[in-house]
Design a protein around this nucleic acid. Structure first.
Length: 379
RNA sequence: GCGUGGGUGGCGGAGUGGUCAAUCGCAUCAGACUGUAAAUCUGACGCCCGUUGGGCUACGUAGGUUCAAAUCCUACCCCACGCA
């Protein structure tokens, strides 16, 4: 089981410093959570992940269920042993895939809407490739095409076998194109599933409930109050967050003020550099985001000077490190921009690893500085 | 030396009389990516003008035929393979 203690509450904002204790060690919060969907931080070994300051990882139920299957992992005493990661670990429930493989795929949208669309999803509509019912969701495996069903019980059973320290309730992540009626219906489903998850779980793992409600204040608050009233060990905040940084903050405020203060809050799938202080100021304790690792594989480095694209020819002769202020292995060696540029242009795989190391280190160091700011009363 | 095939935009490679500034791929340039598909998506890509549009120069070189040629003819230069 886990425990969470709040060390300091900011006077300037809702930010808090805390320690999240798990059977695999403590996490200083606020903390960035590295994404290890398929039981790996893409391109890195678990040893390497340790060196970049990552405290906590999140893997995915849907992906691991399809491959290699939770029984494979359970036979090896769980995911920690399986991937040689001896630190804290969470698994997402598969609820996000209800969106990303459903309406998200149909309409080519992410959970943050980038541009206005006329499309509206309302009650009664179904995505093309999956089927959502009150009992759960029917998917097709991307590996062999077989039909597979994931509901609250299935998700919990799988997550128990995977064996992370923290598991999430199965939810329906709704599309940013879904209207109020759709969201209201989906929310009732998500709430029912939340109770089922609590009743299903028999392990000592911590279980987080997930707040949904889309962009709608009444639904967000209703969800936070309801999910917050259930005996969860912590809370995930899922779904969409409007179309601007301002609306994201507002939605988080509506939600977090309704949740019990003493339990940890995890913001699911959000964390651009520009978002980090903002979300921490609303009272988020942990958050995961693919940004550092995903962008690394597209040739980008996050630096104190902003995001740079190492594929650009302007770096061909640059003997500078990615970021002169960075203390990561890549920057201190240093591997030069010129070298990384060359490797990217040559389609080598090494630069993807170098950039992943740097970006994760950068994000973790960035959040560590935010913790310092809270400690000093600056944020 | 003879024979055959061929020379197209940065590269590879379509096109074989008008609808061609020229399909396509690569490269290049610009942009995207928030509970993760590195090998993905979008746009630009001869030059010039303020976009739609217009002008100019182009398909080895030089001539020619034709209302009209990258596409036909002649000569020359170069390349590949084959035979001597």
């Amino acid at each position: 089981m886990i425990s969470f203690s709040i060390i300091k509450k900011s006077k300037k904002s809702k930010a808090r410093l805390g320690i999240l204790s798990t059977p695999h060690g403590d996490v200083e919060t606020p903390a960035f959570v590295g994404v290890a969907t398929q039981a790996t931080v893409k391109t890195l070994t678990s040893d390497e992940v340790r060196t970049v300051g990552t405290q906590l990882l999140i893997a995915n139920t849907y992906h691991l269920h399809i491959r290699p299957g939770e029984d494979v992992i359970k036979k090896q005493k769980g995911i920690h042993t399986f991937m040689h990661w001896d630190r804290p670990m969470m698994t997402d429930s598969g609820g996000f895939q209800v969106f990303s493989l459903g309406f998200g795929k149909d309409h080519g949208t992410g959970k943050i809407l980038k541009q206005k669309r006329d499309l509206q999803i309302t009650d009664g509509q179904q995505p093309q490739h999956i089927k959502i019912t009150d009992d759960g969701v029917t998917f097709k495996s991307y590996v062999d095409g077989r039909t597979l069903f994931l509901g609250p019980q299935e998700s919990i059973h799988i997550q128990q076998k995977i064996g992370a320290d923290i598991i999430f309730a199965f939810d329906e992540c709704t599309s940013p194109l879904a209207d109020h009626i759709y969201n209201a219906k989906a929310l009732q489903r998500t709430h029912r599933w939340a109770r089922t998850c609590i009743n299903t779980k028999t392990s000592a793992q911590a279980l987080y409930g997930i707040v949904q409600g889309g962009k709608f204040k009444d639904l967000r608050q209703e969800s936070a109050r309801y999910i917050g009233s259930l005996p969860f060990d912590g809370f995930g905040i899922g779904g969409e967050f409007g179309d601007s940084k301002q609306t994201m903050s507002a939605m988080l405020r509506w939600t977090l003020q309704e949740l019990p203060e003493t339990k940890p809050r995890h913001l699911l799938g959000i964390g651009h550099i520009a978002d980090i202080e903002r979300i921490i100021k609303t009272g988020v304790d942990t958050f995961d985001c693919i940004t550092p690792t995903h962008y690394a594989r597209h040739g980008y480095a996050f630096t104190s000077q902003g995001k740079i694209d190492l594929k650009k020819s302007e770096h061909r002769n640059s003997t500078r490190p990615l970021d002169p202020h960075c203390s990561c292995f890549v920057c201190t060696t240093p591997y030069t921009r010129s070298y990384i540029h060359h490797l990217l242009k040559a389609y080598e795989i090494t630069p993807l690893k170098l950039l992943t190391i740097h970006n994760l280190h950068f994000f973790n160091a960035y959040v560590a500085r935010v913790r310092e700011k809270i400690k000093k009363g600056l944020l």
